[in-house]
Simulated scan of single mutants.
Amino acid sequence: MSFVEKYPRLWNFFAAYFPDADLDNLTDEVVVAEYKSEIQESALQQVVAELDKLIVDTSCWEQAADDANRYFATQEENLAWLRMVRRELAG
């Protein structure tokens, strides 16, 4: 299964909010905050649950990063970014 099939809500968040953030000079933390301000709490919890599953599903990390227009040299960098997104979503 692909990233979008396994994690449809998370894919929607990554693909809709992150790709153009650099052009708008937005940090990833600001992107997450904007998303949180626009989504209902129940939907947010579903996204966090999908992110928790993704964090342990390394097979989808590269596609998730691509869909978010983020590029990482190592899996450790990718994991750090996913954990930062998780922290910001839950905070």
Rank of each mutant, 00 (worst) to 15 (best):
Q40A: 15
V47W: 09
A16N: 07
E76G: 03
F72D: 03
A65F: 08
I39N: 13
Q75K: 12
A49Y: 10
L79C: 05
Y7K: 11
A64M: 10
F13W: 08
A16E: 07
V4F: 13
D52F: 02
L23V: 02
L10W: 06
E88Q: 06
T27N: 01
D66W: 12
L10E: 05
D66V: 14
D57Y: 13
Q75V: 04
W61A: 10
I55Y: 12
E34L: 08
V30E: 14
L23A: 01
Y35C: 04
L54V: 02
V56E: 06
E5H: 13
K6D: 11
V56H: 03
A64S: 13
K53M: 09
R9D: 12
E29M: 05
C60H: 14
A90N: 13
E38N: 15
D20N: 08
L10K: 02
E76K: 07
E38D: 13
V32C: 08
Y71R: 06
G91I: 00
N69A: 12
N12T: 10
F3V: 07
A49H: 12
T27S: 13
V4W: 09
P8A: 09
E29A: 15
S59D: 15
R83F: 00
Y7E: 07
N12C: 12
D28T: 01
R87H: 09
A65R: 10
Q40W: 07
D57W: 13
V31P: 05
Q45T: 08
A64Q: 10
D20T: 03
L79H: 03
E5A: 15
S42G: 05
E29H: 07
D67F: 14
Q75I: 04
A90V: 14
Y71G: 00
M1R: 11
V56Y: 02
Q45A: 12
F3M: 11
L26K: 09
E29L: 05
A15P: 00
N12M: 11
D20V: 04
D66L: 15
N78Y: 03
A80N: 01
L89G: 09
F3K: 07
E62P: 06
S37D: 12
L26N: 01
E76P: 08
W81F: 08
L79P: 03
Q63N: 11
A80H: 04
D22Q: 13
A90F: 05
V47G: 05
T74E: 03
V4Y: 14
Y7F: 14
A80Q: 05
K36Q: 06
Q75G: 06
W11K: 09
V32K: 02
A65M: 15
D52I: 00
F14Y: 07
V30S: 11
K53I: 08
V31A: 04
F72G: 00
Q40M: 13
F14L: 14
K53N: 15
S42R: 12
A64T: 08
V47F: 06
A33H: 07
D52N: 14
A16R: 06
L89F: 04
L89A: 04
R9N: 15
E50G: 07
V47Y: 03
N25V: 03
Q45M: 07
D66S: 15
A73K: 04
K6S: 14
I55N: 14
A21F: 04
Y17E: 02
N69R: 11
D52W: 02
L89T: 01
